[in-house]
Simulated scan of single mutants.
Amino acid sequence: MNLKTQQPGDVSRRRFWTTHEVALLERLYPDLATIDVAARLKRPLSAVHSKAKTLSVKKSQAFLAGPLSGRLDGVRGQATRFQKRKEVAQ
């Protein structure tokens, strides 16, 4: 097995969460789009999703009911959905 040992001057890409970042995540995540939270924290989207899940932080009902949630309400996106096949007269 060839494991690379860390040399002096090597920079680890992993960045630990500070208490300030965790507090900001807990405050912003429920009501903002995750991409906006990630931009504010200067963290990858996957890191924000993962940390929110670890902390059991969820989106608020108000956010999930709003247009930014991306959920379909039966009206949004209707114009671009597949249409039912029309009967062909024989």
Rank of each mutant, 00 (worst) to 15 (best):
R40H: 12
N2W: 03
P67S: 12
Q6A: 13
D10I: 08
L41R: 01
R13S: 15
Q90A: 12
L28W: 11
D10H: 15
G74F: 11
T54I: 07
K42T: 08
K59A: 03
Y29H: 09
N2R: 14
L3R: 12
L68R: 15
A52H: 05
R81P: 02
I35H: 07
Y29T: 09
V75R: 12
M1R: 14
A65G: 05
D31N: 13
A89H: 10
S46R: 13
S69G: 02
L3E: 03
A39I: 01
Q61M: 04
R14Y: 15
S69T: 00
K58Q: 15
V75I: 14
M1T: 07
K53W: 10
A62T: 12
L32C: 11
H20R: 14
L64N: 14
S69N: 04
L41G: 00
T18S: 15
Y29W: 10
Y29G: 00
E26Q: 14
Q6G: 08
L28F: 07
K84M: 15
Q61C: 02
L28G: 00
Q61R: 13
L24A: 08
D73C: 01
S69A: 10
S60F: 01
A52I: 14
S56G: 02
E26H: 02
G77A: 10
R40L: 03
D36V: 05
L72H: 13
R85T: 05
S12L: 07
L64E: 11
Q61E: 12
P8L: 08
L45K: 01
V22C: 06
L24V: 14
T34W: 02
V88S: 06
H49P: 04
S12D: 13
Q7C: 13
Q6D: 09
L25M: 05
V11R: 04
V11S: 05
K53V: 06
A47C: 13
G77V: 02
Q78C: 01
V11Y: 02
Q83A: 05
W17L: 13
T54G: 05
F16V: 10
R40E: 01
T80F: 10
L28A: 01
L68C: 04
K84V: 12
G9E: 08
G70M: 00
L28D: 00
G66L: 04
